[in-house]
Computed example of a mutant assay.
Amino acid sequence: MPNPQTPLIQADSLNLRINDNPILQDITLSLSAGEIVTVVGPNGSGKSTLLRALIGAMRPTSGRITRASGLRLGYVPQRLHIDPTLPLSVRRFLNLPRRHSRQAIDQALEQAGIPGRADSALTSLSGGQFQRALMARALIDAPNLLMLDEASQGLDQAGTAEFYRQLEHIRDRLGCGILLVSHDLHVVMRAADRVICLNHHICCQGRPEAVTAAPEYRALFGTDDDTALALFRHNPHHHPHDAHTEPDHAG
């Protein structure tokens, strides 16, 4: 079990290049238990690459990533292709690569918002239900840190809002940290304790209301409408990091 006084994961001066193209530049960030952090940015800004680097799927060109000792990591990918001819039930899918108890599977499906679907064929699920099955798979080992890459795709606006409310319940129940990438700005910022605005480097970060007021954010997303920004505001949660409300400008 990670020490609650130390970050779950931390990146220091992280750089990553692909075919000599700089994708991530001088990224420094950390994430603590009980915190929901959202990464936003335009297409091609390096958001998915950042998550893959943090979980160890991509090797940084330079810099350091530190993970807490004993960290249990759950990851929900942006997409996962399953052969539609494969006779795979949700239960069998959740038992890959190792078996779990019936109780653990039922609990994970309930937490993900699709209770009672363990014996359904994976291919019979709607797009939104499939994303929730991926979420259940990430939750089944009670992660300390949950990472989600555009995990609300396939959901309509109401389903997306419910999905992020579910994330808050998961955080409150497990006490885990959550790091998610999303383009659903109007919805996701309401669930975030902290927002990181990324465009290959960290443009700004802080509480949602501070970030949406930052000129770097407005330049990227082309909004200067304060009434629209009001949609981003949410009821703050009382966690130790609540004091850090100012955007952290990083060039």
Rank of each mutant, 00 (worst) to 15 (best):
R102I: 01
S101Y: 03
P22T: 10
Y75C: 02
P97S: 15
R17K: 07
L146R: 06
A53C: 15
A142L: 08
A219L: 11
T28K: 05
D193H: 01
L51E: 11
Q10E: 15
L96Y: 09
R67C: 04
H183Q: 14
S48G: 10
I27M: 08
T66D: 04
H249G: 03
R91I: 08
P208I: 00
N199F: 05
E209K: 12
A151K: 03
L51N: 06
D141H: 10
T245K: 09
P87I: 13
H186I: 02
Q205W: 12
Q5M: 08
R52S: 10
L185C: 06
L185Y: 01
G41L: 11
R132D: 09
Q78N: 09
I9V: 05
G74H: 08
T28I: 08
Q157V: 12
L134I: 05
Q157I: 11
G154I: 12
G41I: 03
A210E: 14
D226L: 14
S152G: 08
S48L: 12
P4W: 11
G127S: 13
L51A: 11
I65L: 04
T227C: 09
R207L: 01
E110S: 14
H238W: 13
S124V: 04
D12P: 00
F163D: 11
P22Q: 01
L180Y: 02
T85K: 00
V39C: 12
A104G: 08
G177L: 02
L146C: 04
A53I: 02
Q78E: 15
S30Y: 00
E216I: 06
S182C: 07
Y217P: 01
G41H: 04
Q153M: 07
T49A: 14
R92W: 00
G116I: 11
N3G: 00
T123D: 15
L179H: 09
G56Y: 13
E110M: 13
C204V: 07
D26T: 15
R132L: 07
N235P: 00
I27G: 10
G34K: 01
H183K: 07
R173L: 03
A68V: 08
R64N: 10
L54K: 03
D248V: 09
L14D: 11
D83L: 03
D20F: 07
A228H: 13
L88F: 10
D225G: 13
S32N: 15
P87V: 05
A210V: 01
V211N: 02
P4R: 09
V195T: 09
Q129R: 11
A230V: 03
G206S: 01
H234K: 14
P42V: 13
L179I: 12
R102P: 02
L148P: 03
A136N: 06
D172Q: 14
S69C: 04
A142G: 04
N3Y: 10
Q157C: 01
